[in-house]
């Protein structure tokens, strides 16, 4: 039977191909024990993780909402100029 760690490495590559980066990161983590010393593996794993972080940051910025709070002094409307 195939080695599960090796399978995970290939599944990570397939996930990248399908642009499922979170899935790929999960498979990379599973395969890490066997391939941690392989430079190619490390580059792919770390690039995927960096990409996920960048995507999260973009999501946060794009979904940032500015909340405007109007303060009324003593319940009276204030005229702003």
């Amino acid at each position: 039977m195939l080695n599960e760690t090796e399978k995970a490495y290939f599944k990570a590559l397939l996930a990248i191909k399908e642009m499922d980066y979170s899935g790929a990161a999960g498979f990379f983590r599973f395969a890490e024990n066997q391939f941690a010393d392989a430079p190619e593996f490390r580059i792919l794993k770390e690039t995927t993780e960096l990409l996920i972080a960048v995507k999260e940051e973009i999501f946060e910025i794009e979904n940032e909402r500015i909340e405007i709070e109007e303060i009324l002094s003593d319940g009276q409307e204030t005229e702003f100029r």
């Binding site: 990248i16 980066y21 690039t47 990409l51």
Partner: peptide, 8 residues
């Protein structure tokens, strides 16, 4: 990064 991963 996406381009790099796709090419890899």
């Amino acid at each position: 990064l996406q381009g790099f991963l796709a090419r890899a």
